[in-house]
Structures are given as structure tokens and as C-alpha cells.
């Protein structure tokens, strides 16, 4: 199992540049901690793999149209954070009922204003973007299960300039030859 507990000592040990990203994540879903406890937030049955796939596309867009990866997330949620599948089921049902199939439609709808549904959408998005499922989807620090590294969606938005760390991009010195490319797109409207 690619499961790992990150304890308090570990965090303090994390090197200087790294700790920042984690410090940011501590407040990952701040404010939603108690929501799930206070409200009846989930459905009775976990979301199916089919529905999670459709829900992922509806919340994230075409970049989440990857059935094997969606199924891997489904399995990981089932193992590491099964209650999320209940919340996802509720979100899925409500979006279906409202006929929402794209991120634009979801964010323009009243559903996106609902704190619980919004938090569920964030939880799902976090999994796809960070490539892992947290044991507890309002605390990214509690460890969880790894699903993807290379295919985590956080890398794609900068893929034309940077690398997925540890992978190569081009010949040595590629980094010194990007000026024209960067200045061309950063000046574009």
C-alpha cells in the first residue's frame, strides 16, 4: 500500500523550501472541518465507478476523462477515505438532477455555493490534481494513498515551460533558451 503517515515531527523536519507548500496545505479545506460532522452530507450508497468518472469530468473537465485513472481514484477512496464516496454520491446525484456536466455549468450553478457540495468538489479536484487521496479530505496532512505522480493534473498547466520534477525536458541548458517562448506568451493578452 502506498500509504504513509506524515507525523508532526516529519513536518518540522521537512526542508526549508518544501515546508512551505505543506504549510499552505494545512489550511487546505479550512472552515469545512465541521461541516461534514454537522450535516447529513452523504448519500446512503457510495458513488459508483461509472458515476465517479462522470462526476470527475463534470467537475474538472476533459482532463479528467481518463477511465483507468478515475477507477484508481475510486478504489483508493474506497480504501483510504470511504465516506468521501458517500459525499461524492450526493454531489453526483445533485449534479445529474440539475443537468450539470461541465465545470463552467457547475460553478455558475447554486450547487457550487453550497459549502458541503463545494468542499466535496474541492476534495475530488485535490485528488486529481495532487495525485493522492487523503485519509481525511479536509486535512491533506493526515497521509493517505498515492494514486498518481506523473498524471497528477497539477503539472499540466505549466507543461510547456517546466518539467514534472525528476523527468527530463530537453538537452542540457534548455532552461537558458526559453526567453523568447516565455516572453511571447507572457505578453499575449
Amino acid at each position: 500500500m502506498a500509504t504513509q503517515k506524515v507525523g508532526a515531527e516529519d513536518r518540522s523536519a521537512i526542508s526549508r523550501r518544501a515546508f512551505l507548500s505543506v504549510a499552505m496545505a494545512a489550511s487546505f479545506l479550512a472552515g469545512t472541518q465541521n461541516l461534514f460532522a454537522q450535516q447529513q452530507t452523504g448519500s446512503e450508497t457510495p458513488v459508483s465507478a461509472d458515476d465517479l468518472h462522470a462526476l470527475s469530468i463534470a467537475v474538472i473537465g476533459k482532463t479528467a476523462d481518463d477511465r483507468p485513472l478515475s477507477d484508481a481514484f475510486h478504489k483508493a477512496f474506497g480504501e483510504a477515505n470511504p465516506s468521501f464516496l458517500l459525499r461524492a454520491s450526493a454531489l453526483s446525484a445533485q449534479m445529474k438532477a440539475a443537468g450539470l456536466t461541465t465545470p463552467a455549468a457547475f460553478s455558475a450553478s447554486p450547487l457550487a455555493k453550497d459549502p458541503v457540495l463545494h468542499a466535496t468538489a474541492i476534495g475530488l479536484t485535490a485528488a486529481w490534481y495532487l495525485g493522492h487521496v487523503a485519509h481525511d479530505d479536509h486535512d491533506d496532512h493526515g497521509g493517505g494513498q498515492v494514486v498518481a505522480y506523473e498524471k497528477a493534473l497539477m503539472w499540466a498547466p505549466t507543461a510547456d515551460v517546466t518539467v514534472i520534477p525528476s523527468y527530463s525536458r530537453g538537452a542540457p541548458n534548455y532552461w537558458a533558451e526559453q526567453t523568447a517562448q516565455i516572453e511571447a506568451h507572457s505578453k499575449a493578452p
Binding site: 482532463t63 465545470p103 490534481y129 497539477m154 517546466t162
Partner: peptide
Amino acid sequence: EAANLAATQYLLGQGVLQPELDDRIRSMSA
């Protein structure tokens, strides 16, 4: 360091979802 992880975590913490999220990650990472 590539800032994708830090930017993504920050933006998710701010409640940013798609379709905005990709552009915001790019802009913030850069």
C-alpha cells in the same frame, strides 16, 4: 523549484475550482 504543488495547494485552500483552476495554477506557478 517548480511551484505547481505549492500553487495548487494554495489555490485549493482558497476554494478555486475548474474551469478557473488550471489558469490560476499556471499564473501563480509562473
